[in-house]
């Protein structure tokens, strides 16, 4: 019961960074449990499981079928459940992305087992122990998972992918047949260049202090300079300046980037809850008493319309330099 399997995520046949994070977490856990790490890649024909040995996979199952090019919830869940049932697994790890948040409970329900969602840490201490922020990050549970197997979804950016060379032997496996109850017909507005706030390692968020939707150009420019994603406070999403997909905080996304810029954001409790696990927070705000400065590692007090363009320029110099 000591093996760990990571169910990986690809887009357009290319594995996402969160897949390497899941594998790294699986490797650490399996080493503590004295087991192997297996990976499962589900995707279109031609999707490859090569190179996953570099991130600690002992064995890689690949279910490649053109019917699986897009995330098809029922077929993905059935395929994953089949592979898990065919092996000897203590833990199933997925990334807590849009796909993982949908797939993890499906797999857990099919296996009739425990789910711990959106965990920020997973370890073995006589049992599988996970850390889970709850109440929008205002409290943190330490939980022991007693189910075998247990399904765990891992918050993006919570684990840094590490190389750890193992065999990574690839084995083809068949995609589960049967009719899909729901079908993903298409992905609209695909913007492959755009980074998602929940997955990006740098996030630049703007708030009310920008005064007008058009001024978000400043945020976009800074995000482009640092190679990060654009985020937004609830106030500006509710005002219709930005889409909900960019909202950071309690009714938006919880983020754990290595660097977070809060620009013109005062720091309502709902927003602070969503950024608590960011590694470094930078605040730029004209109000020195704004709550955001209480959680920020570095702050500049002043006019963002002067500060942000200068910051973008300085960062561009470094990146070019």
């Amino acid at each position: 019961m000591a093996n760990v399997i990571a169910v990986l995520e690809q887009r357009d046949g290319t594995l996402k960074r969160v897949s390497h994070e899941a594998l790294t977490a699986a490797r650490t856990l399996a080493d503590a449990m004295g087991g192997e790490v297996h990976a499962l890649v589900i995707g279109p024909s031609g999707v490859s499981g090569d190179g996953l040995g570099d991130y600690g996979a002992d064995k890689v199952f690949v279910a490649a079928d053109d019917a699986l090019a897009l995330y098809q919830p029922d077929l993905y869940a059935a395929t994953a459940a089949d592979v898990v049932q065919g092996g000897d697994y203590g833990v199933v790890i997925l990334a807590a992305t849009a796909m993982g948040k949908d797939l993890a409970p499906r797999v857990a329900a099919r296996l009739g087992c425990t789910l711990a969602a959106d965990v920020t840490a997973i370890q073995y201490d006589g049992g599988v122990v996970v850390t889970r922020p709850v109440y929008a990050g205002k409290a943190v549970y330490t939980l022991k998972l007693t189910g075998v197997p247990s399904v765990v979804s891992l918050r993006p950016n919570a684990v840094t992918p590490e190389q750890n060379a193992k065999a990574g032997a690839v084995e083809a496996t068949s995609a589960a047949g049967g009719a899909a109850r729901a079908t993903t017909a298409e992905v609209k507005q695909p913007d492959r260049a755009a980074l998602d706030v929940a997955e990006a390692s740098v996030v630049v968020s703007g708030g009310r202090g920008l005064k007008e939707a058009e001024h978000f150009k400043l945020i976009e420019d800074l995000a482009a300079a640092v190679g990060g994603a654009v985020g937004a406070s609830r106030a500006v999403v509710d005002a219709g300046w930005r889409s909900h997909a960019e909202q950071v905080g309690q009714t938006g996304k919880t983020v754990s980037p290595s660097l977070y810029f809060a620009v013109g954001i005062s720091g309502a409790i709902q927003h602070l809850a969503g950024i608590r696990t960011a590694k470094v927070i930078v605040a730029i705000n004209k109000d020195p008493d704004a709550p955001i400065f209480k959680v920020a590692d570095y702050g500049i007090v002043g006019d963002l319309f002067e500060i942000v363009p200068r910051l973008t320029e300085e960062i561009k110099k470094i990146k070019e330099g």
């Binding site: 990050g137 409290a139 330490t142 939980l143 022991k144 007693t146 608590r276 590692d297 570095y298 500049i300």
Partner: peptide, 21 residues
Amino acid sequence: GVEIVLLTLPAERKKGRIVGE
């Protein structure tokens, strides 16, 4: 299959500083 070990408040963030105006 979930046993609660502990519920805690999140770790306080290290105190930051204002680098300037």
